[in-house]
Design a protein around this nucleic acid. Structure first.
Lengths: 354, 354
DNA sequence: CTGAAAGCGCTTACAG
DNA sequence: CTGAAAGCGCTTACAG
């Protein structure tokens, strides 16, 4: 034995805290049992190099018997890969992005990755902090759901690690972006109202600092134009995608705006606010006013009346983002294939009567 | 220099992938700059031992100047602490638990911890898998939001690491549980209806496999008893806390049950379903039927009519759980101090007319 | 109070 | 195809 041969361990942390699960099995133990070196086990685990069938088998058996599960923490330190991806969401409790998060989680988990969700709170500073936290945790990639961070900042981060951005248009070597066809969706919604005979169609906009809001406004304008209906600024009011802003917006429209027989809200949440405002003013939906929302959140079909809206599968947006990330991680070129927006006609719209 | 003095590094991985952020600063660099050993830096970082004021200062300056941020991955490997806690939530997109998650995130982040959210999908197998994933990631503690895992299983996991359980009653050395006062809340709701003169009060129960559902049923029964109103099974129907189950439940009640003038739904989501069902049957709320929900989810005030309900601060449930976890992590005894449930009277209830 | 050294559980050039 | 060894960036007994 040479003098510097492996000394017996000094610490006995490996007593393990667990009686329940027993001490975690290490890769070294697997190697021992399989009669190979740790390197070989590692290579089999990662598919890093070809290994003779016998050893392959021996190692697989050992892993099986020992119930070995590689320690992601050690992996992260040694290999630089943590098998985790950071997700900057705006609010972890968002009724809208929640579905996307669920989608992300599903495909990531299947691929052996864990998503780390951090809230950006719709604030640039928080988003930045969230990303820093995620970088410190050495995530392998970053998925950003909308937010307020300037594109330039995102592009900069994308130089450090693969990035997928939802709700923006960005191109770059290690970056991929995908979004709904908001403009098309908004056209569908507006056109539906036009088809029902409405000509005075009010519009509840989202916060125009938000790309989605701008695109939906554009769709509304386009549909009007296509139908030869002049755009009337007195019919447009800005909200911020929340219920209260929908309520307030409609109040303002009713008080100061031009008369209208239909209303298109840029999202369902504002539509709910609108519904309440109209109710308060004694206006009935759809008898007096037809209303269309956007998103088809799960409660939309339980609105009174059930809300006509534009369905965007936020869930699929999430799975799409996750799949794109996986592609990036494999150094492949991602492609997104989102289902187009779809009008869901329920009971909040009807043919114009007056 | 002795022969085994630190050899120059062979690999130059430290070229770093980042031009943007520069190579991450290591603790070693901080030590170098401050003229102390890495051990000392580590001790200052962790408050593990007293250090002379001068060194303390020097190290803090170095950290400041270098912008050093300890690598949690390395910390996790070396120290066994990852500064992360696992959160088993039922659906990452849950409108109900979302608020709790947000609360957890807030207090955890302040304490330097990162929460790892994993969905259990209301399925025992998935919950188990979620916990295994979290254990593999070496989280320092576990917060479990309700779920179907048997108590015994949770107790077993609690032998391995600190655990906080929301929505159950569990006692143990390394475990803490907290929950709403469901029974009290349900009594409040029912009592409110009684106070309005209602005697035939129907009850929409949640899935009785769920503790919360049982407690709310109990509260309903107690309130009736307190008021001398006999319990009538024909007035009770079981749902599963979802909107469709609320809708179906009311339909069934209307078709087969006994007549009623008021309805208490075990949660807001079922109340929304109930609202639609009543609307479909031409029954008006609150003129024909008074309706009370439970939870006060954010859209409750935008229901038509705005829903009378019982407020439980799910957010505070989350912060309470997180604070309890922090206490456990410090080997202290946690204490929870949840605000009591509160009746929020809006417009879905009124004095009995017929 | 403080440092040198070993170790956490992996991965990966390097050298057959 | 495969192993020995160094290293990832920390923490923590051990020994002053």
């Amino acid at each position: 034995m040479s003098p510097d041969s492996k000394p017996s361990k000094r610490r006995t942390r490996s007593t393990s805290k667990a009686t329940g699960a027993g001490a975690p099995v290490t890769l070294e133990q697997v190697a021992l049992k399989a009669g190979v070196s740790p390197s070989t086990v590692s290579r089999i685990l990662n598919g890093t190099a070809a290994v003779s069938p016998e050893k392959q088998q021996a190692v697989e058996d050992a892993i099986e018997q020992l119930g070995f599960r590689p320690n992601p923490v050690a992996r992260g330190l040694a290999g630089g890969r943590t098998l985790s991806v950071g997700v900057v969401t705006q609010t972890i409790s968002s009724p809208f992005y929640g579905e996307a998060m669920y989608g992300i989680e599903g495909v990531m988990e299947q691929a052996g990755y864990v998503p780390l969700f951090v809230s950006g709170n719709w604030q640039e500073a928080d988003e930045r902090k969230a990303i820093e936290t995620l970088l410190a945790r050495r995530v392998d990639g970053l998925i950003v759901l909308a937010g307020r961070l300037p594109n330039a900042a995102l592009l900069r981060y994308a130089r450090e690690l693969p990035m997928v951005v939802v709700g923006r248009q960005l191109r770059g070597p290690q970056i991929f972006s995908l979004n709904f066809e908001n403009t098309l969706g908004a056209r569908l919604a507006t056109q539906h109202l036009v088809d029902l005979g409405h000509r005075r169609i009010a519009f509840l906009s989202g916060d125009l600092a938000h790309g989605d809001a701008v695109e939906r406004l554009r769709g509304y304008e386009q549909a009007l134009k296509d139908s030869g209906i002049p755009f009337d600024p007195a019919l447009v009011v800005q909200g911020d995608f929340t219920e209260p802003s929908g309520l307030l917006g409609v109040m303002r429209l009713l008080d100061d705006g031009a008369p209208f027989t239909a209303l298109f809200a840029s999202n369902d949440q504002m539509a709910f606010g609108a519904l309440l405002a109209l109710h308060r003013r004694g206006l009935r939906v759809p008898d007096d006013i037809s209303l269309v929302g956007f998103d088809d959140v799960s409660v939309a079909k339980y609105a009174l009346p059930p809300l006509t809206t534009v369905r965007q599968s936020v869930y699929e947006l999430g799975t799409g983002a996750a799949r794109a990330m996986l592609a990036l991680l494999r150094a492949e070129t991602p492609s997104a294939n989102l289902p187009p927006p779809e009008l869901v006609v329920r009971e909040s719209t009807r043919r114009r009567m007056r």
